[in-house]
């Protein structure tokens, strides 16, 4: 490449190629994400209520102490964990199976795939409102189905803690399984075809082809799917808020709902910020562990 002088040369220096490629992304994230993040992190050390005119009052770890001892944060962390485990697990299994179904060529594949992708395109609010209707004891499809084919009585799913959890998990998994499916499918179609042809010549069994060719190609995308769905599901809010409103009692009160209530119903702004950071801390620890384990296993394989 021709060497230009001065400022431009500084930019074009091959040594700076990496930083230069990354810079735009870092600038946008710094402006819109990281600075506000720091701001609210600062706020969590003050005593502050958004609905009063009182100035924020510096109080060290008061909010954290309060949140960890008084509010039912432990219970809601547990609830969130159950929902995440149930929903993400279901999404992975169903998503992988659906992707395998759609990975082969068959007539009408493109159109049928669109039907399966449709749930993901609905908004959370729409899914929540309609699943509430489906679970409804009088008009709901579920109740009517149970009534006419199984027990002959109205069926109320959301009235028991376990039922409410199942209801939430089912709706969330239904909506987001296509996401996992699409990621896995993108991995499946990127497997070079000559590998399968070679396997065909070697007369490999179906299972061996799957474990030695298909799975290694899909694995990194599957792990990414677990990561992203976990991060998103931990924050679950709209669906739970509309479907069960955290009930019955506090059986489905996820951390997202608890934060919302603390911030906008009780106006404990700094407490809600503290909760958010406790959650962030928990997620960071879990994610680093997860990434660490993956790294370990990858280096073992090489």
């Amino acid at each position: 490449m021709k060497r230009s002088s001065g400022f431009l040369a500084w930019f074009m220096d091959p040594k700076r190629r990496g930083p230069m490629l990354i810079a735009p992304a870092i600038i946008v994230l710094l402006l819109v994400n990281i600075i506000p993040l720091m701001w609210s992190f600062g706020l969590s050390f003050f005593k502050y209520r958004a609905n009063t005119l009182k100035l924020p009052n510096f109080s060290w770890f008061y909010s954290y102490e309060k949140v960890l001892t008084k509010d039912n944060i432990w219970e809601s962390l547990q609830t969130t964990a159950i929902i995440v485990a149930g929903s993400v697990g279901m999404q992975m299994i169903l998503g992988f199976l659906l992707a395998l179904l759609f990975a082969s060529q068959f007539p009408l594949r493109k159109i049928l795939l669109m039907f399966v992708l449709a749930p993901m395109m609905l908004s959370n609010v729409a899914v929540a409102i309609y699943f509430k209707l489906f679970y409804e004891p009088e008009f709901g499809l579920l109740s009517q189905f149970v009534q006419s084919f199984i027990t002959g009585e109205m069926y109320v799913l959301l009235s028991t803690p376990a039922g409410a959890l199942i209801g939430v998990i089912f709706a969330d998994a239904w909506q987001w399984t296509p996401f996992v499916m699409l990621l896995v499918l993108a991995g499946l179609v990127s497997v070079p075809k000559h590998l399968y042809e070679a396997a065909e010549i070697d007369r490999m069994s179906w299972w061996r082809k799957f474990t030695t060719i298909t799975f290694p190609y899909v694995r990194s995308l599957l792990l990414l799917a677990v990561l992203f769905r976990t991060i998103e599901t931990v924050k679950i809010f709209d669906l739970v808020f509309i479907l069960t409103n955290g009930g019955p009692g506090t059986a489905t009160e996820t951390i997202g709902v608890l934060v919302y209530r603390t911030a906008f119903q009780f106006f404990r702004t700094s407490n809600s910020a503290a909760m958010g950071y406790i959650l962030l801390f928990a997620v960071i620890v879990l994610t680093s562990l997860y990434l660490y384990v993956i790294k370990q296993r990858e280096s073992e394989e090489i």
């Binding site: 179904l101 082969s104 060529q105 009408l108 049928l112």
Partner: peptide, 29 residues
Amino acid sequence: KKAIGQSGWLWTALASVVAFIYFFPVLFI
């Protein structure tokens, strides 16, 4: 060339059943 497997209408039938069940709540809407 074969993608992963070239499957015929039987596969379509299976996929249709799965897609219909999955799509059902949207169909209701």
